[in-house]
Structure formats: C-alpha cells, structure tokens
Design a binder for these strands. Structure first.
Lengths: 205, 205, 205, 205
DNA sequence: CGATAAGCGAGACGGTACGTCACGTCTTGAT
DNA sequence: ATCAAGACGTGACGTACCGTCTCGCTTATCG
C-alpha cells in the first residue's frame, strides 16, 4: 500500500500567468526606471494584476527581484568562463565579457539597481554574484579545476580571488567609472599571478 | 560713482550652526535607521530646522551624505596604512583595521547604507572609498612608495589592487558575510604576491 | 403527458446548518462591532463557511440582516402592548419596556446599526419597526381595539400615532440622547390625549 | 502692561479655498452618490485637493458632513415655522414644506444618507434635526411662544412634540414610504390637540 | 448503482478605498 | 535674506474587503 499522496490543500491554485506577468513587469520596470523609482503599484499596473496579489507572494520589492533573478527574467544567462588549457586566458575572457556587458549603460544601470536592492536583501547580493559567474559551476569551478590540474597552486585562495574580481566589478559600476578592455587582463593577472605555476604562453602586462 | 565693494548682499548670512546641526542629525539618523528610512523630514525635525533650509543647500539625501562624509561627521578617521619597512604587513594591518571596524554590526550597517546612497550618487562611492583608505595619502600612496623603494615591482597595478581590496570589502558587507581576521592576510597576499620583489620575513599563507 | 412535477433538481440540498451558522455569526458580529465594521469575510470566517455560500443566498449585508431579524436571531421577542382596560397605560408600559431595552448601551448600539442598515434596505426599516411593536398584532392592534371599544375616538389616526412613537424612539437613539422613564408617559399622553374619550383613572403630566 | 496678543503660530495659514472646495465636493458627491459610495478619495479628487489635506482637518466622513451642514453647503435654509396667530396652522405649514422637500427623490436620498452618517456621528443627527427646524429659533421657539401667548397649555411638552414630529419624518424617509400632503395636518393635530387651548378657526380632520 | 449536478470549504484573483508617510514647494511672520 | 514652522498637492505605501472565480470534496437525486 503506497504512501498517501501529499494532497494539495483546498482552494484555487496559484495563477502561474499572474506570477510570470509580475516578474516580467518588475524586470522591465527595473531596467527602465531603476530601483528607487520602482514601485509595487507600477508593477501591479503593468502586469495588470492587483497589488494584493503581489503582496500575497512577496513581502518586498527586493524579494521580488530575487525571484526575477532566479527565474532569469532579469539578466542574460550567467557569465561562465570557458575551459581551455589556460586558466588565465579563460578567466580573462570571462572578465572581458562582463566588461562588455557593463559598458552598455543600461546594463550598468541595472547592476547599480541590483546593488541598491542588495542592501535591502542579502539574497540579491548572492544572486547577483551568481549571475556574474561566482558559482561552483562557473568561476569558482574553473579555478578549482585549474588547481586540480596543477595549473594553479594547491593553496590558491579560490574564493578570495572570486570575491576580489566580482568586488572590483561592483565597485567600478557603483562608482560609475568606465572599464577599459585592458582592465580585464590587469585584474586577472594581479589576482592570479601569485598562484599560477606555469603559464601556457608568455605575456606581459 | 565708486565701484561697489564686493560687500555681502543683504539678508541673514548662512547659519553655520544650522548646517552643522543638519549634518549631525543626518549622520545620527543614518546610523540609527539606515538609508531607506532616512527622511529629510526626520533630519529637519531632529536638527530643529525647517525643511526648506535643507533643500536650500542640498538637493538630495545623497548629496547631504557626501558632505557628512567630507566633514567627518559620519565615519571615524580615514583608515590609513602605516609605513614600516614591510608593505605587505602594513597593508595587512590596514585591512585588519577595516575588518575589525566592519565586524561591529552597526558599522557594517552604516557602510551598507552608504552603498545604497552611492547608487544614487557616484560621489558617495568616491567618498566611501576614500574613507576606507583608497586615497593618494593612504593606500595608494603606501603602495606607490613601496614601488619607489623597490619593494614592489615597477609595473605594480596599484589602482587595480586598491580597487580589488576595497571591492572585496564592499561585496562582503553587502552580502552580509562576516570577515575573519585571517581573511586580511589572504586577500592582501593574493593581490600583492605577483608584485612583491622581496619579502622582509618569511610567511606561510 | 403529465405536467412536470416541480421536482427538485439533483444535487445536494441547501445546508441548513450553514444557514443558521451564518445568521448567528452575522447577528453576533453586528452586536459586537456595529454595522460599518461588519464584513462578509468576517461573517464567513466566524460561521466557518466559504464566502460564496453567503453570496449564493444573500446579495448584501442588509438583506442578510433582514433574515436575521425575521428569524429572531438578532433581537428579543417583539415588544407588544398588553391589553388591559386602559389603553394609555398599556401603551405607556410598552414604551417603558422599550426605554428599558434601549438604556442598555449594547442594545442602543444594535438599533443604531439597524438604522444604518435600513438606509441601504427599506425592508430593514420595516422589520425594525415590527420588532419594536409596530404591527397589526401589537401596537397598531392595541390602538385599533381601543377605538373599537370606544376608549379612543373613531377618527384616531392610529398609524400616525404609531409612526410618531417609533420615530421618536429612533430619533433619540440615533442622536444618542438618553431616555428617562418618565419620557414614556409624556410621549404617550401627548400623542394620545387628543383621541382619548375617557381616562380610566386620573393623572396629570 | 497689556495681555499678550494670542499671536498666531508660524507657518502657512490654512487655505480657505481648499476648505470650501472640500465642503462643496463632499456635498455634491453625497447628493449624487449617497453616503456609502462617498469616498474621501473621491472628495479629494473632485475638490482638486490632496487626501492628507482632508485628513489634516477632519477625522472622518461624518465629521466632514457635520461641517457641510453647519456651513449650509448641503441643505437649503433651515425650515422654520412662520409666526401667525395660529400655531397649528404655522406648524402644519412648516411640516408641509418639509413634505414637499422630501417628496423630491434626491432630497429624500440626501436625508437617508445623512441618517446613515448620523449613526457614525451623533453630531450629524443634531445638525440634521436643526436643519429640519428643531431649534430654539424655529420649531421649539414657535411652540414656546404659543405657550407664552396662551394658545398652548403651560405644561405643553414642547421638546417631545418636536421630537415626535421630526422622528416621524425620519422614520418615513428611512422606510421610503411617501408622504401625502394631508399627513401634515394629521401629524400636527395629533401631537398638538392635547395642548391647544383655543383654536382660532374650525378644522376638520 | 453509477452518473450527474448542486452545495460546500477554502482561497486566489482583479479591484477600490483606506489612512499614513514622505516628498518637494509654497507661504507666513520673526529675526 | 534667511530662518522655523507648517500647509499644500502629489504619489506610493501596505492593508482590508469587495464580489467573482476556481478548485476538489461531499451529498443527494435520477436514470
């Protein structure tokens, strides 16, 4: 005799269409207006949904944004380093991709907004880092695999490296100072040079 | 008819007491309540000042905070590395001081608030970095003097290092992840190890 | 082919328990909270009933109250004059009973609530008057029987008398001005003195 | 040394235009929509005024209506009996005027609304009675002067008479039962016949 | 005995209005 | 001229109920 199914409680089920419309509206308005001009009323209006429907499921703007990020409604695919035989090159390319993304004003504005949201809600910070690649599947993973393959020293402080790279990005974006493509190499070499055991090719600066 | 002396125009002069009361009130309220609960009305009330007096001189909360930072009303003395014969030790001590500061919850909250403000106003980001030591007189200067003395390589990317260290702090604080004292050494060594030409003493990770 | 019997269509019959629970909950909440804080949601919750069950059978709060009144869930037995040999005394006693009822704050509040409901729904006004005794079986009947027995003049305006007595009660209760027991005699004598042909006993004022 | 003038406190003075616009809007909307569809938002919108301006000065809809009534924005001039040599005729004419007023549907609706408001706020009941004439300057005064002139008995219960007449009006209007012109004479004679000492002329029912 | 259909509880939904807060501008009288 | 006090129009807040709807279950008659 099988276990009882976890029978769902009575009442109408949650409306998935409404949920998506809300996430979509929130994402669009955040992009257009920025975090401080983002209002629940505005989201409700654009999603053609009642305000209480939003408050029923999310308790704050920042929580809503967490779900936008998690649902990929708000930012493109996560940035992930490739895996060639050269970590430094892989990480540099990854950093360059972010630089290219961030040089677009609207993208920079979006990230600034997310940082504002992150001040309200730690989870946004986590998601934002993830989106930029600070996950075991992306940046951290690539570094760890380089450690495993011997290209980086065994005591390489993977997470500290990750944190400094992401931190440098955040700081520049908040300060609205533009990146140059050549910054990618500088940051990455600076943070990795103490750990690299052998560089596949030669390169200066 | 003689030229008019550059005499003060009529009317009461700007009230310095009011200015200080406003900066003080703003600083206190920011510390107590955080940026998003900080209101002009609240500042005016606490400073026993009319709202228009605030709007006359500052156009936004974040601008007001810039002046609070510049006037040292809001954060303790800037953090500055000492100058011993060992850069790495000096920078590590500086980082440790910040860690100690930030481990106090109220201080972390203050920095989070300032980051929120920085999203509105780039100048806050600049001031915040300054306050943490990213100035020619402090961190950057110490690194440059080490370059001059030969303790760091001539091509040491001073500003990138500075950015990554400050960035890592900001990122942790926003993410509300706690620092450990030993993080100081890790971050600093990671970011400097590619540039140090000679270590005064031996050290293990 | 025989005429279709007005046979009940299939499906569950109306749930009498639910009906009673709703009337009970509505009556209790009206007494406790007053008409303007009375909500359908509140009634449904207290009666442990779904909102649609209420809307299925009643179209508004005031209609629901009409049924509460008709079912005697909401007010005590109707007030009815006795029938002695003295109309004036009978009517006065009836009025006194109402005064005593209304001097209780909660009862006055209840009547005030019913008046608010009556503004929405004429039928509530009718029921309220009935409950206070303005029916052919009670006040009107007693007056008519006095006309029949010759104690009141043949042209006694029974309904106008009834209306003025009930009206005076309503007006005082709405204005929250307290009744005194001696008001009973004053009102009744004033309104009847033009019609009484013989008073069984003597009385002044 | 003279007493200090009650010098007005600093700050902008209350805006009289706004006050009038609010009273006007409230009166119009009450007339058009009835009390239960009357909303503060609607009043604010029609008066082109912010909601807080209403809440600054009045704490509820019913309080606002009290001021509408007191300012004569909401109902025509108070109804007042004339003073001829015949009280009964004077009071009857007064009652007839009210009947004529109330036969207009919109006026009846207005009074119903005011009764609803009166349930919230006793003061509305007082004002409403006043507006209908229950004041020392109108109905009560006319009766008292008749007592003084000997046309009514010295122990005439003036206020009870007044209450029953107004009460009868209220009750009919709430019950939405129409008045006939001949009701005026019936009510008035019924309530006064016990007190009249001499009728100037003859009258039939 | 099903099949059919209404009633029922629970509760999500799009709305409207609530009463409050802070905004940034303005007006006022005093210094 | 600047200041404090504070009223104003604006707009968003988060909450309470509205009346409707959709679920999955129960109940009762009918074929």
């Amino acid at each position: 005799m099988p276990a009882l199914a976890p029978t769902r409680r009575p009442g109408a089920a949650r409306n998935e269409k409404a949920r998506l419309a809300i996430l979509r509206a929130a994402s669009e308005l955040l992009t257009i207006q920025g975090y401080d001009h983002l209002t629940i009323e505005g989201i409700a209006a654009r999603a053609k949904v009642g305000k209480p429907t939003i408050y029923r499921w999310w308790s704050s703007k920042s929580e809503l944004l967490v779900e936008c990020l998690a649902d990929d409604t708000l930012m493109p695919d996560a940035f992930r380093p490739q895996t060639s035989d050269d970590v430094v090159a892989d990480i540099t390319r990854w950093f360059l991709a972010i630089i290219r993304f961030v040089r677009e004003d609207s993208n920079a504005a979006l990230i600034r907004s997310l940082i504002a949201a992150a001040v309200d809600n730690t989870e946004v910070a986590v998601q934002l880092s993830s989106r930029l690649g600070a996950t075991p599947e992306a940046l951290d993973g690539r570094l760890l695999s380089a450690v495993a393959s011997g290209q980086l020293a065994p005591d390489t402080p993977v997470f500290h490296i990750s944190e400094m790279l992401i931190g440098a990005i955040i700081l520049r974006v908040v300060g609205a100072r533009p990146f140059e493509p050549r910054d990618a190499r500088k940051f990455v070499r600076t943070v990795l040079s103490g750990s690299v055991t052998k560089l596949p090719g030669s390169a200066t600066n």
